[in-house]
């Protein structure tokens, strides 16, 4: 393909009450520090983008709780995506004004798909990221929410096609089966989705080693997201990108 476009490596940070947390299925949460500091560290290592998922239990709107987004945006000058609790256009606007460049949506558009149209019309598709958690079924994948506990009776691939038609500019695709296993992404799921949509698909769930990221890019992902391997310092973002570059994937080099 005649392009200089590079593959993106994206660390994902779960944020609860303004702190980065790490837990298995949101239990036994450990505090991993300040979101702005973590994002700045990853950006310095060469992260191409940062995805934040605000898992704060209460979604009552408290602007003070969004202060970490503003602090991040004041020192990290790469794309920042923030998801969690966006139900209305006003919620997205608040995140964007706080410093998010893109807004992630998972549960609310399942209940009210028009939200995607409204956001794309208001802010442009480039800042609408449809986040889909998919669970393997005997045939295909089902959309699930609430960390995989709630099946939604929707076919994941068909839901993503609809989401893109409505205005989602990117897809964050998480395999709930692979999530947390460190055994690699669900490549069949990735191939099934990439065959149906033209917008960038971000692979998520299962990254344990650089070869997993390579396999996802091979399967058609435009970007690969990982959490544990970076948070546990198994690899730095730079090490992963160097390994992917060695394998022939186009990577952004960071000077200095």
């Amino acid at each position: 393909m005649n392009t200089g476009l590079t593959c993106r490596v994206i660390p994902c940070l779960d944020v609860r009450d303004g702190r980065v947390v790490k837990g298995v299925k949101f239990e036994n949460l450990r505090d991993l520090g300040d979101p702005a500091e973590a994002a700045a560290r990853y950006a310095e290592q060469g992260a191409d983008e940062i995805v934040f998922l605000d898992v704060t239990a209460s979604h009552e709107e408290r602007d003070a709780d969004r202060d970490w987004i503003r602090r991040t945006a004041e020192q990290v000058f790469i794309p920042l995506s923030v998801g969690g609790g966006v139900r209305r256009v006003e919620d997205a606007e608040r995140l964007l004004r706080s410093g998010a460049d893109k807004v992630g949506l998972n549960t609310s558009p399942i209940d009210r798909p028009e939200l995607l149209d409204e956001l794309a019309r208001r802010f442009g598709s480039q800042c609408v990221v449809l986040s889909v958690d998919a669970l393997r079924k005997p045939e295909g994948w089902e959309v699930v929410t609430h960390g995989g506990r709630r099946p939604r009776g929707l076919d994941a691939v068909e839901w993503i096609v609809e989401g893109v038609e409505r205005g989602a500019g990117e897809i964050l695709l998480t395999s709930i089966d692979s999530d947390g296993t460190l055994d690699g992404y669900d490549l069949e799921l990735l191939r099934a989705v990439c065959a149906r949509v033209d917008v960038p698909v971000i692979a998520s769930g299962g990254a344990g080693r650089p070869e997993h990221l390579a396999a996802a890019l091979e399967a058609g992902a435009a970007a690969v997201l990982a959490a544990s391997i970076f948070h546990e310092n198994t690899y730095t973002v730079g090490e992963v990108k160097a390994e992917l570059a060695n394998r022939g994937f186009p990577m952004r080099e960071v000077n200095g």
């Binding site: 393909m1 005649n2 392009t3 200089g4 476009l5 590079t6 593959c7 993106r8 191409d48 598709s125 480039q126 500019g169 990117e170 033209d198 917008v199 960038p200 435009a222 970007a223 952004r252």
Partner: peptide, 10 residues
């Protein structure tokens, strides 16, 4: 011949 929109680092 290439995905559009062109999104990412080039």
């Amino acid at each position: 011949g290439v995905p559009l929109p062109h999104i990412g680092w080039n």
